[in-house]
């Protein structure tokens, strides 16, 4: 199963696996509740979700592996994904305004019947959003990253042509930021 091998190699990215694994166990056991806390920290905890790998139930969420990591480790993770033969579905962002963070979400999937959807997330401070580009590994990410830059203003470091794609060429606004006023 490709899922297990990918899980293993992705877990290898986290140098201090012990606390992460623990958290996975608790979160997976608690299911919805834990997910809720993690996504909506305003309710109970103020901290966002810790970095790590979570295995998800496909039927409930629509993807199998959910990885959160630092922008610095992004390229290593994408490299693993690329080696395993995944294709890039999309790149997008989420604006977590209460945590002063922007999240970049990468979706990967596979062409064969060994289905495995991987979601990689990385967070970057809202004031100075910057993540490395993956368009060197996946040229298809070029447009997706440009689109994310359009909508969220996230700078993709090393992107060859980071100009507005869907918005007008002179656009200096980022409509999907939660504090955007048209």
């Amino acid at each position: 199963m490709i899922k297990d091998t990918v899980l293993q190699s992705l877990r290898g990215l986290f140098p201090d696996p012990e606390p992460v694994v623990e958290e996975i166990v608790t979160e997976a056991a608690e299911g919805d509740e834990a997910e809720g806390e993690k996504k909506k920290p305003a309710k109970k905890k103020k901290e966002p979700r810790n970095n790590g790998v979570i295995e998800h139930d496909y039927a409930q969420y629509g993807y199998d592996i959910d990885v959160q990591l630092d922008p610095g480790e992004l390229l290593a993770a994408v490299m693993i994904i690329d080696k395993a033969g995944f294709f890039l579905e999309s790149v997008t962002g989420v604006d977590w305004i209460k945590e002063e963070q922007l999240e970049v979400v990468y979706d990967f999937s596979r062409y064969d019947f060994d289905t495995c959807r991987v979601v990689i997330r990385t967070r970057t401070p809202r004031a100075k959003p910057k993540v490395p580009t993956i368009s060197k590994i996946y040229p298809g990410a070029n447009w997706h990253e440009r689109e994310t830059h359009d909508f969220f203003g996230i700078k993709f470091d090393g992107h060859p042509h980071l100009v507005p794609l869907l918005l007008p060429e002179d656009a200096d606004f980022h409509p999907l930021l939660k504090d955007f006023k048209p």
Binding site: D32, E35, G36, K39, K40, Q60, Y61, G62, Y63, D66, E89, S90, T92, V94, V105, D107, S109, R117, V119
Partner: peptide
Amino acid sequence: PVGDYYQAVETARGSFGIRIVSD
């Protein structure tokens, strides 16, 4: 419920995905 959901379907043009992040 709060969460991040993804659904892919096969449309006439290919794999259409929709991600809903719910609060």
